[in-house]
Design a protein around this nucleic acid. Structure first.
Length: 415
RNA sequence: GGAGAGGUGGCAGAGUGGUUGAUUGCACAGGUCUUGAAAACCUGCAUCACCGCAAGGUGAUCGGGGGUUCGAAUCCCCCCCUCUCCGCCA
């Protein structure tokens, strides 16, 4: 959510941002509704002021008559005001955040820029197999029975892959706890306001599972519950930034991508993830530093696993509504013969915190909206694709990354 | 799932129709005193919105929503949450 004053004073910027993010907005309508809203508020306030004065004097028949008249006028104005406010909020909810100047302008993923590359894709002296083939050979997962039991994109992880799955998540969780991040196990069942707050709604409704007819949804990422953790609260500047490492199961309908990545462990309805979330003060320079810190954490983890990766600076058309700057981290997936997304790292500015009403008190006593950031630490099973494929041996076995060996208790997966 | 109790400012806790946005205590901030600190004393201390260059003014908010009334923290209805007991249960 953007500040109305900001919109009024930066119309051109906001319009361009929406255009560059491929979103349609009606700024003139929004601003005219805001004018109407202000006019109505003025009228209502004046009437209420009069009413309050009357209520404080001795009730004579004359005063009661006058009071009744005010009440009727107020009722009609208040109804108008509610309608205008509703319409305004509906439109305002669709205005995307404004990217930083350093963000490249582009239509879609082709406009993203590679800003860093680490590790060389491995040269195989044998034809490398896909993780699907390896997994089936080594009995690491069962996709057919997964689909039978759970439905399309369902899966069972089996044997060493299940251990590896847990070990990876635990390794990453521990690593970030040691860096001072507060560990959280976050709920995956969330109320609607959290999804609106983080900016999944109103855009991505078709992407989210809704439970029965209650106000209950399945979150696609721990970003949703953890960002909402401090909703409707005023924090202390001295306690910021708040850094969290959060584990949660994640659920995504993957609507609109029915034909994409239908095989294997790449695109799943259900996975587990360790996520990093930061609530910081309203300071762009600090936020940029924290953004780099999050990125370094993600990259360090991949370096621990010795998986080649690259960092992409996302262009406007591929970055999502709430973000002002976003990196995607992609890892080498031999069978795809290319890089695949593994992590997504964003600065949201105060877009989410406005929606969630997360403020902080500055040293001078003033309050301001916080900034929020988040970045994937590790998602699994997707990371298993890269590990299994990159660590495969000629004899069909798969080695385990060194840092994970003590956790799983074996060095190699073989038949 | 059943029965009961309760939700008031950062916390504790008054307040059952008319200057109560809310007594008081604690906490917090500033000041006086002190070599320094503590204690004591003084002052300040909710959030949001609207108008205003500002000073300031006005409105709204006592879990949320609706209603009664000239007037609601106080009365009525619905919902949510918390606690206690019983039942069930990983």
């Amino acid at each position: 959510m953007l500040d109305l004053d900001y919109i009024r004073n930066n119309k051109q910027k906001v319009l361009e941002a929406a255009k560059n993010k491929n979103r349609k907005i009606d700024l003139e309508k929004i601003l005219s509704l805001d004018d109407q809203r202000r006019e109505l508020i003025k009228k209502i306030q004046t009437l209420r002021e009069e009413r309050n004065k009357l209520a404080k004097s001795k009730p004579t028949p004359e005063i009661i008559r006058h009071g009744k008249k005010i009440k009727e006028e107020l009722k009609s104005l208040e109804e108008q005001s509610t309608r205008v406010e509703e319409e305004l909020n509906n439109l305002l909810a669709f205005v995307p955040n404004v990217p930083l100047d350093e963000v490249p302008i582009g239509k879609d993923s082709s406009g993203n820029i590679e800003v860093k590359k680490w590790g060389e894709p491995r040269k195989f002296d044998f034809p490398p197999k896909s993780h699907i083939e390896l997994g089936l050979d080594l009995d690491l997962f069962d996709l057919e029975r997964g689909a039978k039991v759970s439905g399309f994109r369902g899966y069972f992880l089996k044997n060493q892959a299940s251990q590896l799955h847990l070990a990876i998540l635990f390794y990453v969780f521990q690593k970030l706890v040691k860096k001072g991040y507060t560990p959280l196990i976050a709920p995956a069942i969330v109320k609607g306001f959290t999804l609106f707050g983080s900016g999944q709604f109103p855009w991505g409704k078709q992407e989210v599972y809704k439970l029965n007819d209650e106000d209950a949804y399945l979150a696609g990422t721990a970003e949703v519950p953890v960002t909402a953790y401090f909703s409707n609260e005023i924090l202390d500047e001295k306690d910021l930034p708040k850094k969290f490492v959060a584990f949660s199961p994640c659920f995504r309908k993957e609507a609109g991508s029915y034909g994409k990545d239908t095989k294997g462990l790449y695109r799943l309805h259900e996975f587990w993830k360790v996520e990093q979330v930061i609530i910081a003060k309203n300071d762009l320079e600090e936020a940029k530093k924290l953004h780099e810190e999050l990125q370094n954490n993600t990259e360090e983890i991949l370096e621990d696993f010795e998986i080649p990766y690259r960092r992409m600076l996302m262009c406007t058309g591929d970055m999502g509504e709430p973000q002002i700057k976003k990196y995607d981290t992609e890892i080498w997936m031999p069978y795809r013969g290319g890089y695949g997304e593994i992590a997504s790292n964003s600065i949201m500015g105060d877009f989410q915190t406005r929606r969630l009403k997360i403020k902080y008190r500055k040293k001078d006593g003033q309050t301001d909206y916080c900034y929020s950031l988040n970045d994937t630490a590790i998602p699994s099973p997707r990371i298993l694709i890269a590990i299994i494929e990159n660590y495969q041996q000629k004899d069909g076995s798969v080695l385990i990354p060194k840092v994970l060996q003590p956790l799983v208790g074996f060095e190699k997966i073989k038949k």
